[in-house]
Each structure stands twice: as C-alpha cells, then as structure tokens.
Amino acid sequence: MSNLIAIKGVRHAYSTDAGPLPVLDGLDLTVPEGEFCAVVGPSGCGKSTLTRLVAGLMKPDAGEVWLEGKRVTTPRKTVGMAFQNPVLLEWRSILDNVILPLEIVDPSMSRAKRVARAEELLAMVGLEGFEDKRPSELSGGMRQRASLCRAIVHRPSVLIMDEPFGALDNFTREDLWQTMRDLRAVENFTCVLITHDLRESVFLGDQVVVLSGRPARTQYILDVDLPHDRTIDVLYTQKAADMLHDLRNQIKIAQGRDVEVH
C-alpha cells in the first residue's frame, strides 16, 4: 500500500504584530491509502494549521505535502473537509447542502444523479426524511451528520476533519463515531481527523499521531492494533485502556508537564 498522504519536514509560521509565530516545526506524517489517522495535541499547537496545509489552502514555509503522489500547492477536488462548526447554508435544504460540492467538482453531472448520491449518503447517516428540511430545523448532531455527507459526497480520496464532533454531547458523539466507522466501511477515503478526545482517536484511528506543543512536530505515533469493525465496547478493554494511558502520558509531555509516576 502506498502512502496517500505524506508530510515531510513541514515548517510554518504566521506573521503577527509581535513578529513571526512559528506554529509547525519539523512535522512528519504519513498515512497509507484507506487508513484513518487521528491527530491529537495540546490546544493551539497548530492542528488546524496542519489541516489547512493538507487541503492546500495554505503553503508551508518549508517542507513538502504530498497527496496521491503529487506535491500539494493549491486546493484540489479530491479533498473533502468538515469542521467543528457544520457551516451548513441556511438558504439551502439539507439535500442541496449536501449536493453543493458536486456543483463545483462535477458541473456536468445531472441533477437526478446528484440527488441520488446525496440521498444515498443521507440515508447512510440516518437522515432519511430530512432532505427537505432547513439546517436550523435539525439538532446539532444531525447537522454534523449532514456536514459529513457534504464532505464526502464527491467521493474525495482524502477526508480532512477538524474536531468535527467537538461541540457535541458525549452520547451524540459516540453515535457519530459509529456513523463514521460505517461510512468508512462503504466509502473509500483516507482520513485525517483532528481531535482533542483520546477515546475518539483510539476508537476511530488506525494510527494516532501526537503533536508536541507549539511549534508542533510529530512527537509520538501510536499504532492502533484493533480490528476495523470496532464497537464502543472496545474502549473498555485492557488493550484500549493501555493505549489511552500511553496517549495521555504523551499529551502531558507535549504540554510540557511531567508524567505522573505511579
């Protein structure tokens, strides 16, 4: 299997009033095709910056970002994005919100085909019957489901998510993890998920990458050696507990605090 995403020695700084603010410094990351990479790190360390670099929305000061064997310099149609804020367009129905990327990526596609594709996805995430509703008529979890559909409607090869479940309550969040797992089984995409929830990273990830504090570099990579068809129960096994403990210690190191001795 080839690496669908390869990030090599990426360095980036924002220019601020107080001078340059280095955000990423020597970040390396590789994600094989079809794999799910969860990224965790201290708050403000540069995780969102990383997503913008992978999406080609920004160019790094130094280092390289490769997608599907090509150097990323501009945005590309094979990327899908979802954010913590579902950013649905209130003047469009849920169905038309999901269709939006198709209008950009494939203008020649017929309306009927678009609708069929969107309906298929909406049914998969449990939003059947909500196609004609407005975003404001849906709950937060449902909006995030619609936002996920929109992110993958054009069959992107890479799905980039920046804390997509961060604003949801715990139960809704666990529901969405399972939705995500099911989508992955049907749709073919390689995934980068930014999260601050370690349980989420272990439940969904094939690898969990821990970033150091700002400026971020790759501090630790955990291979999640669990089957793809996980259930929430897996989080209550000893194996998962060990992994979570491991990650927690790494986060403490990233935050610059000592690891608890026990």
Binding site: G56, T74, L89, I104
Partner: peptide, 24 residues
Amino acid sequence: EYRDILRSLGASRFTIFRKIALPK
C-alpha cells in the same frame, strides 16, 4: 470556514461569492 468548504475544492473567488458570500 464558509469560504473553505468551497475553496478547498478549488472553487474560484467568483464561485464562492455567488454560491456562499452573496446569499449569506
């Protein structure tokens, strides 16, 4: 983020204006 959902697909500034910024 509103801009980025279309910009990440390589949409032009004009498309982003027409589909998102203007209606919003």
